[in-house]
Design a protein around this nucleic acid. Structure first.
Length: 577
RNA sequence: GACCCCAUCGUCUAGUCAGGUCUAGGACAUCAGGUUUUCAUCCUGGGAACAGGGGUUCGAAUCCCCUUGGGGUCGCCA
């Protein structure tokens, strides 16, 4: 009955049919389609992918959508996109652009129910699994009782005492029931883990776990075991939160006569505070804020209906939809923690840098090399160098790597990629500038950019209308414009007409004029005139080098902004000291 | 609480499996100087760790045990 997938796939796409003795390495990433891909999941995917690439094997993607309540098609597309953005391509799995397909599908578990049923029947018929009729409420009560008495709870196998006719009758009545796997008595399970070594669990620690839910869907444990077998998965690389599951899977595999895969459990990724980095962290941050504000009903503008609000507030496991979470964060003024791949994409990080950083979290190539590309990972990745201890996610190191990568880029590349970034997230920058302006804008910012987000955030003033620039009476603004015997306003007024005569309006020509003026009037101290101009045209003390800044703005805008700034002189000087 | 996993600078790690070359290396962060028209870069230098206690051994960051600390799991979620 078992399909020998490894043989079936050899030869496909002209692969390595001559190496028939060693089974082709096949790894898989199997997320549930809830929300975007978070960094922990991304790292698991990366390790699976890199391991398959290194071994010349195949990397598959499977969607674990057996929870009818939580699965949604749109969410799954979200992380396909995240994976593709990172450059993690799957050989088999859901079809998406030029990825996916394959002979061992379907790759959505919800479409494989008949396969699970076949094996399920086999187990029940052979007495290795049995039907159980306790209701969820009864089980919850039993757990609570055990907890109150401070004893560990384990399913009491009550259903095992049911005689065959009772079971038959109840089934005929259509009584809801689950199927439980009968854990063999007194058999300690030892699993071999490529990272952790031998892990041994006593049979008495395991209960007869559910393998089919009352709705007819298999549980995770059962579906995983069947699918991994049918899909020919040889190596299961996943987060350590799954370690406790592996003995269950091993037992199922033994019972079904399947080979066990090689397991590799990778340590978890933590937040800086030491807690597990989880996609629920965003909701956690929001809930904490909501509680401290004592909000009983959804705040205005959050677009959440009161009932959903109450449910979300009351259930630690509940997650808001991404859009609603963002809205709520906006309304409350909370900064959501960046934990999804997508968050870093929005933040202007390079996919190859995130991939590099993720690889370094729990793995190292040995020696001192830290920065490397995809090809290097595919060439060097191995299970033997995976670190056992958990790692904290360090934003500042990621940022430093991103800076290095941007600085190492050649100029044309940078312009192109910043343009692509703007196309995706900041189209206004492209609309408001000519191609030439944008190029100058990009290059003027390159050396000072740690992310693609930096030039955008600090460069809003470039695309704003001349007449909405304001000069808030901050310390920096006052220093540039008001301080000193000869103040910034004075210098601004003095160079204004000089700039008006500047022709052509190029950085070098502007530089010529301003340095000459500074030589004559400020002992060659260019800053004394550059800074007032910077503040006048941007409204603040920060901008790219002044000559570039002025070129991007153009002569008209520069003069208009200087004039408006000068006009606000009295008002600004009236403030503060 | 029970079971399981883990333990080198603030953080990620090299070194551990095959004990000596480790007065423990790198990176990020930090501190001090310097360059710079702002911000950011950039350059130079400094401080910073083998969790504690027992063994084994001529010799332990490396092997063993205990303690402590951190984490994971304990769902008809995956």
């Amino acid at each position: 009955m078992a399909v020998d997938i490894s043989k079936k796939n050899v030869g496909q796409r002209g692969s390595i049919s001559h190496m028939s003795e060693a089974p082709l390495v096949r790894t898989r990433f199997a997320p549930s389609p809830s929300g975007h891909l978070h960094v922990g999941g991304a790292r698991s995917a990366l390790f699976c992918w890199a391991f398959a690439r290194r071994a010349g094997g195949r990397f598959l993607l499977r969607i674990e959508d057996t929870d009818q309540k939580r699965s949604s098609e749109t969410a799954s597309v979200g992380f396909l996109e995240d994976l593709a953005w990172l450059g993690i391509d799957w050989d088999e799995g859901p079809e998406w652009h030029d990825h996916g397909g394959g002979d061992t599908g379907p790759y959505y578990q919800s479409q494989r129910l008949d396969l699970y049923e076949t094996y399920m029947d086999q187990l029940v018929e052979s007495g290795l699994a049995y039907r159980a009729f306790e209701t969820p409420e009864e089980l919850t009560a039993a757990r609570a009782a055990a907890r109150a008495e401070k004893r560990p709870y384990r399913y009491d196998r009550g259903a095992l005492d049911l005689d065959a006719s009772t079971v038959k009758n109840w089934m005929a009545e259509g009584r809801p029931h689950v199927i439980r796997f009968r854990v063999p008595d007194d058999a300690a399970t030892t699993i071999q883990d490529a990272v952790l070594g031998e892990v041994r669990v006593e049979a008495s620690e395991l209960e007869d776990f559910v393998i089919r839910k009352a709705d007819g869907f298999p549980t995770y444990h059962f579906a995983v075991v069947i699918d991994d077998h049918l899909m020919g998965v040889t190596h299961v690389i996943r987060g350590q939160e799954h370690l406790a599951n592996s003995p269950k899977h091993a037992l199922l595999q033994d019972a079904l006569g399947f080979d066990r895969p090689v397991w590799a459990h990778v340590s978890l990724i933590f937040n800086p505070d030491g807690s597990k980095m989880s996609k629920r962290d965003k909701d956690k941050a929001l809930r904490t804020e909501v509680r401290s504000l004592g909000l009983e009903t959804p705040p205005e503008g959050s677009e959440i209906d009161p009932q959903a609000w109450a449910e979300w507030l009351g259930d630690k496991r509940a997650q808001l939809e991404t859009g609603k979470a963002v809205k709520l964060a906006e309304v409350l003024g909370v900064e959501l923690p960046a934990i999804n791949v997508d968050d870093f994409r929005h933040g202007g990080y390079l996919p190859e840098v995130l991939l590099n950083y993720l690889a370094l979290l729990g793995w190292s190539p040995g020696g001192d090399q830290e920065q490397f590309d995809r090809a290097f990972i595919c060439e060097h990745f191995g299970l033997d160098r995976i670190v056992k201890s958990p790692a904290k996610f360090d934003r500042s190191k990621l940022l430093a790597f991103n800076l290095d990568a941007i600085q190492a880029m050649d100029d044309d590349q940078f312009v192109l990629r910043l343009e692509a970034f703007c196309q995706d997230f900041e189209p206004l920058f492209l609309e408001a500038m000519t191609a030439h302006q944008f190029k100058v804008f990009a290059l003027a910012n390159k050396a000072r950019s740690k992310t693609f987000r930096d030039p955008i955030d600090s460069g809003r003033f470039f695309i704003e209308a001349d007449d909405i620039i304001e000069w808030p009476a901050t310390k920096a603004v006052r220093k540039a414009l008001c301080k000193g015997e000869v103040c910034g306003f004075d210098r601004l007024a003095a160079v204004r007409d000089l700039l008006a005569t500047c022709d052509p309006w190029t950085p070098s020509q502007i530089e010529l004029i301003l340095t000459a003026w500074a030589e004559e009037n400020c002992d060659g101290n260019l800053g004394q005139v550059a800074q007032p101009i910077r503040v006048a045209v941007s409204g603040g003390p920060v901008s790219p080098p002044i000559f570039d800044t002025l070129e991007i703005l153009g002569q008209d805008a520069t003069l208009a902004r200087i004039d408006r700034c000068l006009a606000s002189r009295e008002q600004l000087q009236g403030t503060g000291a």
